[in-house]
Design a binder for these strands. Structure first.
Lengths: 226, 226
DNA sequence: CATTATTAATAGTAATACTTTCATGAACCT
DNA sequence: AGGTTCATGAAAGTATTACTATTAATAATG
């Protein structure tokens, strides 16, 4: 897998950036430090100015890669979901049992940070944290319809589709596969956030990670086999 | 119920505002037009300056009521959840069957806009829309821990607690009542958003409202009676 | 070596998110 | 009736944000 991953290049919608950050040194620095700073400061306090100071470069140089910080966030969320989709496909590909696929997909989605991250350029831990804390801001805007049309949320829709396809594979007649899939994927993110910041809203802390996978497996299984 | 509602005064945490907006004319105008404008413009484009122009008042007058727009949003979300909790308690109070309570609670949460809003000062439709589109931004910030400590999310935690208590009433041994409750409440909001803006993520459109209640009822029921 | 692309440095603009000060008028208190 | 308090409005000011534009320096390429 390491070998495969080292050659892995995730396909990111070209319209998200002005200039592909993976093609230059500065671009890669923008990704690394940008991820780090959004993680640390939160999206609201993060600015391109601060990133420029950190990278000892000019603000205008960063603007040549990304139109604004919102697009940078969208870049990261696409990167994250494309990565998880890759792992889901890779690890479920040769399995026969749809139930096994479900277990593995849920495990990856609930505990992505346990994945081997050799060959992944960006920190999976940081990506995971910013997706948990910031990703809803990427589509909860007035620009959602045009950005959806432009394909900015494809990676997120794709992973949801994968999960819903596994659900449908288990029970072809289940009519709410998409709703169940998206509710669980969103729920997995929220439960992690609640565990850390609003424990009254969850039964888990961030140590029982396998339990969190269990309950989402149960939610799906118990539903599709009514 | 109308009579009761006309006397209803929702308790909002005093630390959310600098000066209680419900006590003055300007304060009430800030709530009404603020809600309207956040709904129309979205939180990002909404500013106190724009609100001041709309109300033909000074920006500084608005700042005397709310520290910033973030607090105003928190005010609205508290108002909304306090209102729904009131309805849930009111409508389930005298019921014996926990299952009936569950059905009613879910129905209220999924279709709040069908509620009789005589006596509610603010538009339930607009509240519903901004809670769907903006409420996650109220707690997805770096200030979440201190604001949680200050009680800014009590109303949200309370309604989740109500739902989880109903779940526990149905099955005392079910260990994940809080996770199930918060996942469903968040899911109900997201499904409404997806139906409108990202239909690939849901099986519903915004016309089959009763179906949306059904699936969340099923998710809960099928789980607690494993 | 010439061309082109890339970046850094600087400056500038409009808007945002406030804060401060002060004047006015209404409400209320004795 | 007169003084005080309080809410509001008007105006001005500050720091930061979110950009855009211009130009010079540097590196890559052919």
């Amino acid at each position: 897998m390491d070998i495969l991953l080292s050659k892995l290049r995730l396909k990111i919608n070209q319209d998200i950036f002005l200039k592909d950050p993976e093609t230059t040194e500065l671009g890669n620095h923008i990704l690394e430090s940008g991820l780090e700073m959004i993680d640390q400061l939160g999206l609201e306090s993060f600015t391109f100015k601060k990133l420029a100071v950190q990278l000892q470069t000019a603000e205008s140089s960063i603007y040549r890669y990304f139109e604004n910080k919102h697009k940078l966030l969208i870049y990261f969320t696409n990167y994250y979901w494309a990565l998880l989709e890759y792992f889901v496909v890779f690890k479920t590909n040769n399995l026969i049992s749809a139930d096994d696929k479900l277990r593995i997909a849920i495990d990856i989605l609930c505990n992505p940070t346990q994945l081997n991250d050799e060959g992944i350029a960006l920190s999976l831990n940081k990506l995971n944290r910013i997706v948990i804390a910031e990703s809803s801001k990427s589509f909860m805007t007035k620009a959602v319809d045009s950005e959806n049309k432009a394909g900015f949320f494809e990676a997120y829709k794709n992973i949801t589709k994968r999960l819903s396809q596994i659900i449908t594979e288990i029970n072809t007649d289940y009519p709410y596969a998409k709703t169940l899939a998206s509710t669980c994927i969103e729920g997995m993110l929220h439960q992690q956030y609640f565990a850390q910041h609003m424990p009254a809203l969850t039964d888990f802390n961030n140590f029982d990670k396998s339990q969190r996978a269990d309950i989402f497996y149960q939610i799906i299984k118990n539903n599709i086999n009514h």
